[in-house]
Structure formats: structure tokens, C-alpha cells
């Protein structure tokens, strides 16, 4: 794969990834478009620009790790990993079908190049911190990145893990909250508000940044700052828009877990050229 730091190229890749997401979920007739689209710039920046990784050597011990803790956004991860060369692009449309390597939620049994099977919310931070602990023990400077939903961090285990991460000074771990303000049943503020989010992470001892999660320059700068932070883990609160890039999906709770119809797929793709 050809890595790049060029924002225009990264924007083009982001558009391509969004097209994959729409096409995959449309073909599957089920899935989670909203939270996949909101995390695109985060994953694209990590895989094309920030992370040390090699699709030709997926188990390289010194690689950086990525965990999609909000496993229901699997389509964005599959599209990104496929475009990086980890797995076939032409099978993306088998998403959620029997026997597909692209299971409904990330599943290492079907796609061993994944770092973790996820889908049951609230667990990825602990996994990331466990990996971070092991990497430090081995004297490796690899970093671990994990993306969370804002609804997901209502899970208590997240805060057990947050305490653990700062106490153990795991500065090789970076959590990114895809703060798109919507969860399945509606707006987060109407379900169980997580605000003030950055204050929470700061009070748990994390170096905390707030950014526009769709601004590629801000996303990159946040990862650079995280990598330069010693003695504490970093949490990036990425303000995002659920359904970003498809006008009729943006900021609408309906698109948390509903697939677009063929006509809606076509409409969405027209916006992603």
C-alpha cells in the first residue's frame, strides 16, 4: 500500500471508503451506516498516515495495533483494511452473508488479520491496555489505537479501564471517541448523557484532546500530539456527525442501524463522487 500524508489524497480515500460502506450495507440489507460513516477520517488517517503497519506482514510484532471497539461499525474497518491490502476489496459486498470473511461484527476467526473480535460494547479499551502492557513489557515502542462509540462509553468497564490506563501510565495507548451524539434509541443526551466528555477523561488522568473528527489536519495533529505525550494515555474526543457524507443520513438517529434501499444507495453514491 502507498501511505500518504497529503490531505487531498486522504480526502479522496475517505470518499472511496464511504462509497464502500454504502454499497456493502446496501447489498447486505442490514448493518450500521451512521456510525461507520462518522469514523471514516479517523480510520483513514490512522491506516494511511499514522500507524506503523504492513499489510504484507500483518503479524509483524512491532506493528501498531488497531481495535474497533464499536464493532458494529465493521464496514468502515473492512473497507479501510481491504483498500490497504489486508483482505479482498471484491469480497466487501459479501458483508454479513453466511461464510463471509466480513462478518456482521469483526470476527478474528473469519478474518485473522483483525486484532480483536468486537461487538459487545465496552471491552476494547481493556484489550488495548492489555496489549499496551504487553508491548511495554517486550520493550517495543508500538502504539495501540482503539475507537469507541459515545453510547458505548456508558458501559462501566470503560471507566474501569480508564482508571487502569492512567494508573499504569500506558502512554502507548490512544483512545478515540467517535462523538457523533447519537446511539440506537436516539440522541445520547436523551438516553444517558456522557457530557462533559473531555472533562471525564481528564479527571480519569488521560491526556485529552477535543477535535473535529472530520477535519483531516486536526485528526492528524491529534495523533501526533498523542504520540508525543509521555506518562499518560491519550483520549481524543472526536466530534463527528453520524452519517457524515450522506446528506439524508447525517445527524439522524434512524441511520444508526438501518440499511439504505437500492434507491437510497444510488442517491448516496451520487453525493460521494
Amino acid at each position: 500500500m502507498q501511505k500518504t500524508s497529503n490531505p487531498q489524497e486522504l480526502a479522496e480515500i475517505s470518499k472511496l471508503v464511504r462509497r464502500h460502506i454504502i454499497e456493502m450495507i446496501g447489498e447486505a440489507k442490514s448493518g450500521h451506516p451512521g456510525g461507520s460513516l462518522s469514523a471514516v477520517e479517523i480510520l483513514v488517517t490512522l491506516y494511511w498516515d499514522v500507524m506503523r503497519h504492513d499489510p504484507a506482514n500483518p503479524k509483524w510484532p512491532a506493528r501498531d495495533r488497531f481495535i474497533l471497539s464499536k464493532g458494529h461499525a465493521a464496514p468502515v474497518l473492512y473497507a479501510v483494511m481491504a483498500e490497504c491490502g489486508y483482505c479482498p476489496v471484491d469480497e466487501l459486498k459479501t458483508l454479513r452473508k453466511m461464510g463471509s470473511i466480513y462478518q456482521g461484527h469483526p470476527d478474528v476467526r473469519f478474518l485473522p488479520v483483525l486484532e480483536a473480535s468486537t461487538g459487545s460494547l465496552g471491552q476494547g479499551l481493556s484489550l488495548a491496555l492489555g496489549m499496551g502492557s504487553a508491548l511495554k513489557l517486550d520493550g517495543l515502542d508500538s502504539r495501540v489505537y482503539a475507537v469507541f462509540g459515545d453510547g458505548e462509553i456508558q458501559e462501566g468497564q470503560i471507566w474501569e479501564a480508564a482508571m487502569y490506563g492512567s494508573y499504569h501510565k500506558l502512554d502507548n495507548v490512544c483512545a478515540i471517541v467517535d462523538y457523533n451524539k447519537i446511539q440506537l434509541d436516539g440522541f445520547v443526551k436523551d438516553i444517558l448523557d456522557v457530557a462533559p466528555l473531555a472533562d471525564k477523561w481528564r479527571s480519569f488522568g488521560w491526556h485529552t484532546l477535543e477535535i473535529d473528527g472530520h477535519d483531516l489536519l486536526q485528526v492528524k495533529a491529534a495523533f501526533v500530539e498523542a504520540a508525543a505525550t509521555n506518562g499518560k494515555p491519550t483520549c481524543i474526543v472526536a466530534n463527528t456527525i453520524k452519517g457524515k457524507g450522506v446528506s439524508f443520513m447525517e445527524n439522524n438517529p434512524k441511520w444508526h442501524g438501518v440499511a439504505p434501499s437500492p434507491a437510497e444507495v444510488e442517491l448516496a453514491l451520487k453525493e460521494l463522487v
Binding site: 510484532p61 495495533r65 486484532e115 480483536a116 471491552q123 481493556s126 484489550l127 488495548a128 491496555l129 492489555g130 496489549m131 499496551g132 502492557s133 504487553a134 508491548l135 517486550d138 468497564q157 479501564a161 487502569y164
Partner: peptide
Amino acid sequence: AIGAGLAMAG
């Protein structure tokens, strides 16, 4: 889950 992460890293 911390233990699982440690195991995932060998």
C-alpha cells in the same frame, strides 16, 4: 479483558 489483551500480544 486486560488479560485477554496481554494474551493477544503473546
